[in-house]
Design a protein around this nucleic acid. Structure first.
Lengths: 331, 331
DNA sequence: CTGTTAGCGCTTTCAA
DNA sequence: TTGAAAGCGCTAACAG
């Protein structure tokens, strides 16, 4: 026979007080000193822990937030999740982690999951093709903060200033003297990638230079597209890749062709990652202020949950930082 | 006025049946066909979703599992979490993700969190210095599966055959003709690292070779220790690093000294990661069968939760796979 | 400051 | 097969 987990009533009995007194003590409401001691002792003696599920049912708050991202194995998102977990923990909340694998259908499933579990709020990196109305309809009354990908002016978002960042990245490449810069990206329909593309197009057309895009629906095919491009007669003279995953695929493509270092195209990538400085040549990147972004996102989310925030949707756009290493042509 | 979320009672009223009938329908217990239709319609019309917190309170199962790991930003763990999330999702469970940052104190906090939220089970990569009794006492009645780090024969665990893997890794290095092999690790007190060390020591002493350990409490200091070793008169002629993080630190140390390629020590590391093949030279590693491990771990966990598993603690130890690239001296 | 009571949304006897 | 009623553990309202 397993000992049942103790409840408030058990604690109350042992401390010879009412259940509500225990509850009050637990939540820091004033109780007389001697009672406080008796209750604390009873709690310790029984090894009592309040039951969040019961509390949630009663109070209407689960002290839980959801996080839905494409996948955790992407460095950018794993750092993001780490930060979210820490911030949530500081506020006494746990995070329910869900992934949508870039599938809008899977995302719908996960939104429903969040709904069933009644998370108090959600941090969401929306899947490509997400629609604001559908998302918010799936979670009526639950605050949602979009991260990394902007999908609607009506939705709270914290994102990179993608267009601007692509601007400066492209200009930097241009300054090195490259003219036939090509962008590489796996899924161009993703909002932030679209904006990066626009930023790039802005400066290329302004200089009357031809734009060029190397893309593919997945990374396998992207690698193939890259290798074909490299050996084509009209190959670009520099590359701007839109995600760390795309950057890695590009590197893989270089590798596959066993291109000598001199033949490798200069490369500038979005998103920094641990080993960027260790590949050969060290990778220049546009770094996102991930920590800052996540702090903004969680701050905003918790203010929404508490209702201490003007109702207008808030879009927080943070600048990227160009990290010069060598792959872009810098020395 | 916000529309309140619909409850079983609302559905019941609309379908003109009792609440328990709705509940039965929801859980797939037999109901008469016409009633089934009416209920389904009512559910659709109201946009009803069952409330997991209420169900949890009543049924005693939260359909939630906990995952406590050191940090998500380590490639090995982020992949692990990804897999856990998928497996849990298949079984209708959500995962609460918590990190302990290698702090035994933080781990205690997180165990308490899991207890408050009443997770049905826990997958845990125990912090260095964890004690089986403390952990299981913190979560009476909750099944726990240790992953990656073995801490007690009494605890269900799925781990790498660390000692054996270190054996073959060391032997491989020896076969290349290296004699003064040194191990590099940040926190040697972590169980799996201890076992790797033992495996290494086994074969070194058997060959009457001197053992050597480069270690430090954190990666900053480890890098320092490495650079000093590299310039010392008695430098090793090959390195065996015990984690991907340690491997990266080693690479960083090479980089910092701007060692020419010829001067870089041959290196073999535990844990594969995305860019291992892209650094220079491509990294040889001992790869863990992460996917398999996590499938074993979740399978076992859910069998424990359902009680369909003999009570004896189960230790599942999986072999590692040596991935030969070039950093170890292979060509 | 304290205890009693009711009820959050669900499932599970128990009768019908 | 179905409905009524009880109760999971907690807290909020109310009365003392």
């Amino acid at each position: 026979m397993v000992k049942k987990r103790p409840t408030v009533t058990d604690v109350a009995k042992l401390a010879r007080v009412g259940a509500s007194t225990v509850s009050r003590h637990l939540r820091g409401v004033s109780v007389s000193p001697d009672v406080a001691i008796r209750v604390s002792e009873a709690i310790a003696q029984l090894g009592y822990y309040p039951d969040e599920t019961a509390r949630a049912l009663r109070v209407g708050r689960t002290h839980t937030i959801g996080a839905i991202i494409p996948q955790v194995s992407n460095m950018f998102y794993s750092r993001a999740v780490q930060l979210i977990e820490e911030e949530a923990g500081k506020r006494g909340c746990a995070v329910i982690l869900l992934t949508h694998q870039e599938s809008i259908k899977q995302q719908a499933v996960q939104l429903a999951t969040i709904r069933r579990y009644r998370a108090d709020g959600l941090i969401l990196a929306p899947a490509a093709g997400s629609n604001f109305e559908e998302i918010s309809a799936a979670l009526p009354g639950t605050p949602i903060i979009a991260i990394d990908r902007y999908i609607s002016p009506a939705m709270d978002s914290v994102v990179l200033r993608n267009r601007e960042a692509a601007h400066v990245a492209t200009e930097h490449l241009l300054r090195h003297g490259y003219k036939r810069i090509a962008c590489v990206v796996s899924r161009p329909e993703i909002a932030s990638f679209k904006q990066r593309w626009e930023g790039y197009v802005d400066v290329m057309t302004e200089r009357k230079l031809e734009t060029s895009l190397i893309q593919a629906p997945d990374h396998e095919q992207l690698r193939y597209a890259l290798t074909s491009t490299f050996v084509s007669s009209h190959r670009p003279d520099a590359l701007l890749s839109f995600s760390n995953r795309a950057t890695q695929t590009t590197l893989l493509a270089f590798d596959e062709l066993a291109l000598p270092r001199a033949e490798r195209l200069p490369l500038l990538g979005f998103d920094d990652f641990d080993l960027a400085s260790l590949v050969d040549p060290p990778l220049s990147v546009v770094r996102q202020p991930t920590e800052n972004m996540m702090r903004h996102a969680t701050d905003l989310l918790f203010r929404r949950i508490e209702g201490t925030e003007p109702v207008e949707p808030k879009i927080i756009a943070l600048p990227g930082q160009l990290v010069y290493r060598r792959s872009c042509g810098c020395s």
